[in-house]
Design a protein around this nucleic acid. Structure first.
Lengths: 201, 201
DNA sequence: GGGGCCATGTAAATCGTTACATGATTAT
DNA sequence: ATAATCATGTAACGATTTACATGGCCCC
């Protein structure tokens, strides 16, 4: 149940509407924690009911409305408490390694398709992480700058460094997955050629 | 929804009761896909209703009962089809990297606790993966031997190699997480000492 | 006036977790 | 006899996904 803490982390920087929050999610934070709008809006309502955030209704044109949320003191406290609490690691559910462990049950072609898919997936993830790292490097991330504006001087470096730290970890993991899948492709080739040789092809 | 395919992968090797399946889960497959008994029993029932497996009731003593399931042809086909289908990567939900990206929002002590926890978690995972790799190396895994018994000679090598491949991938990832968290600890130290220096301590 | 974006949800279904519940068999 | 372990679930709740649904604003 980290969704609300992800939302609080972003809202603590400054008030946002559900819509804007959702955009931030699909961008930076979304690389780490995906949440669709249909989950964000109700969660914001729940958080408001629990007093963690407060929404302010704003007119937009004639009839348009938007609710801009800001974190209350209780919300800030809840966030800090969560930050100081051990993470609960949820149970593993790793379809890729599950399938990898049983690749002998399918054809070499299907095995290769799977591994190519794994590489493609993690390459696209890596690109996203790398993009975030570039933003951090060049200091042109909208979100980061929004955060730095409200950050006291002494904490700016920490803000930047931890973000870099997080995304570097993600990038390394992506590279690891890609390397692993590449080795898998070689393994498929090796095993397939052996079977061919045994069959006298 | 890979649970049923994980169950099928194990059942394809040979018939098992829900209880035995559940044990296999907590052992080998459980490192990759966790499932509690309260999820396994109902899922088996559902799979039986859909004709993927069949359960045979066996007496056990006077009144005891157990249902031993085996895969039907339809189940085997469903499994093979799944193996030849692209994996659907579920959306990221990574509380550790989420927290890491916002570590400046807490104290150095809490940040260190978090990172130590991360190291401890992945070290214990690594140990489990390493243990599985040892079993594979020494060929003394109950499960692996059960599989090898029903595996034609030509596929034995593949069975072993893919299992090794999967667990090596997991072990590398665990090592990556540990390294990353260790670097995080150094970063916390560096940033904390800088703040101390600025405060003239 | 139309297309793209702003803005906010509801509903249904599935999946997963946690807690509860029960009883039989077997080895010591 | 009693503890371990075999054996099988139900119930309630919460999290997540997917699909559906609606309408206004703003710029061209």
């Amino acid at each position: 149940m980290s969704l609300r803490y992800a939302l609080l982390a972003i809202l603590r920087v400054g008030p946002l509407s559900g819509y804007d929050l959702q955009k931030q999610f699909s961008q930076s934070v979304g690389h780490v924690w995906h949440a669709p709008d249909s989950q964000i809006y109700p969660e914001l309502r729940k958080m408001q009911n629990e007093g963690l955030i407060e929404g302010e209704e704003q007119r937009r044109g004639e009839r348009g409305m938007r609710r801009v949320y800001h974190v209350t003191e209780a919300g800030d406290r809840a966030y800090r408490e969560w930050m100081a609490t051990p993470l609960d690691y949820q149970r593993v559910r790793d379809p890729a390694h599950l399938r990898a462990a049983y690749l002998e049950n399918t054809t070499p072609e299907a095995a290769r398709d799977f591994l190519h898919g794994h590489i493609a997936y993690w390459e696209s993830e890596l690109e996203a992480f790398q993009g975030e790292l570039d933003h951090i490097e060049r200091m042109d991330s909208a979100m980061l700058n929004r955060r730095l504006e409200v950050t006291p001087d002494g904490e700016r470096e920490a803000t930047i460094e931890y973000k870099r730290f997080a995304y570097e970890g993600l990038a390394e993991r992506a590279r690891g997955e890609i390397d692993w899948a590449r080795r898998g492709l070689k393994l498929v080739d090796r095993l397939a050629s052996r079977v061919d040789a045994a069959a006298g092809i």
